[in-house]
């Protein structure tokens, strides 16, 4: 049976497709700000740091979304607190805090009944998306996109020139934590599709691909979302057809897109650069 027939026939596949498309969009959008602010490592950290929150939420029987957001934001604040109040640099602080949170999460998860849960949280299982997960993802998606639309100016200026933003009165610290909250929400939304371990790839790879192709932020955001969606759909196709882990196939598809841009981007691609320098040398000889 072809993938398209299967999508028409099986509801679980429709849900998977819809969820991963949404995840592709929001990861792509937030990812642009993450890479432009030099926070790729932070993206990785926050995605790992949601684990203890997810575990505690499962134990208490509340929605894992709430636990994840709390532990993600608390870790982000912890990272900021350590690096601002000591000589410990930001990347070191990130390394200390997120591994601590992740380790705590692993211990908490082992108290839970089944170990398959841990496997699904870590690596994603998009084919088992429940309707409630789909709605959460949709809700997060709308909130994230609306936030970026409404605060586009503020996100742009604080990413580009934070001193000016601060001087004219923007609360840059709060913008940072707001972005961390959005990042945590995006991570939670991506849990089912790609899992904790690989979320960072969905955040930075499509954004980095778009970064190689344009010099305007808003175009970069759209391109990044498109690449995220392509990766999600094509990745899901391979996952379904060859019975592979969905997170892994989605990430590899986005890596292929990145490599294409890396070699063939009109302005930044290494192929055109090489050709241009060769032509220049030829014209001089």
């Amino acid at each position: 049976m072809s993938f398209i027939d299967a999508v028409i026939q099986y509801e679980f596949l429709q849900k998977a497709l819809l969820t991963s498309t949404m995840v592709g969009i929001i990861c792509g959008v937030i990812g642009c700000f993450i890479i432009l602010r030099g926070m790729a490592l932070m993206g990785d950290a926050i995605s790992h740091a949601v684990l203890p929150g997810v575990a505690i939420a499962y134990m208490l029987g509340v929605n894992f979304f709430i636990g994840a957001v709390i532990s993600g934001v608390v870790t982000a604040m912890g990272i900021g607190f350590v690096s601002q109040n000591s000589r410990i640099k930001n990347d070191i602080s990130i390394g200390i805090m997120f591994t601590a949170a992740f380790a705590l999460g692993i211990i908490l998860i082992t108290f839970m009944k089944s170990s398959t849960d841990l496997y699904h949280i870590l690596f994603g299982n998009v084919l088992a998306v429940r309707p409630s997960d789909m709605w959460i993802t949709l809700g997060i998606g709308i909130f994230v996109l609306l936030s970026v639309y409404l605060f586009y100016k503020e996100l742009l200026v604080s990413s580009f020139d934070s001193t000016m933003a601060q001087a004219y009165g923007l609360p840059t610290k709060w913008i940072h934590y707001f972005l961390m909250t959005l990042l945590t929400m995006v991570t939670v939304a991506s849990l089912q599709t790609v899992g904790i371990i690989l979320v960072v790839a969905m955040l930075i790879t499509p954004a980095a691909t778009a970064y190689l192709l344009t010099d305007r932020l808003w175009i970069m955001i759209y391109l990044s979302a498109v690449f995220g969606v392509i990766a999600s759909i094509v990745g899901l196709y391979f996952s379904f057809t060859y019975n592979l882990a969905s997170g892994a196939t989605i990430v590899l598809v986005s890596t292929v897109l990145f490599l294409l841009a890396f070699f063939f981007s009109p302005k930044q691609g290494i192929l055109w650069r090489a050709i241009k320098s060769r032509n220049k040398k030829m014209s001089l000889s």
């Binding site: 432009l36 742009l156 990413s159 580009f160 020139d161 001193t163 970064y211 344009t214 010099d215 305007r216 932020l217 175009i219 970069m220």
Partner: peptide, 9 residues
Amino acid sequence: QIDWDFPIN
């Protein structure tokens, strides 16, 4: 202080 590779014209 400015990232001159920032995608902005």
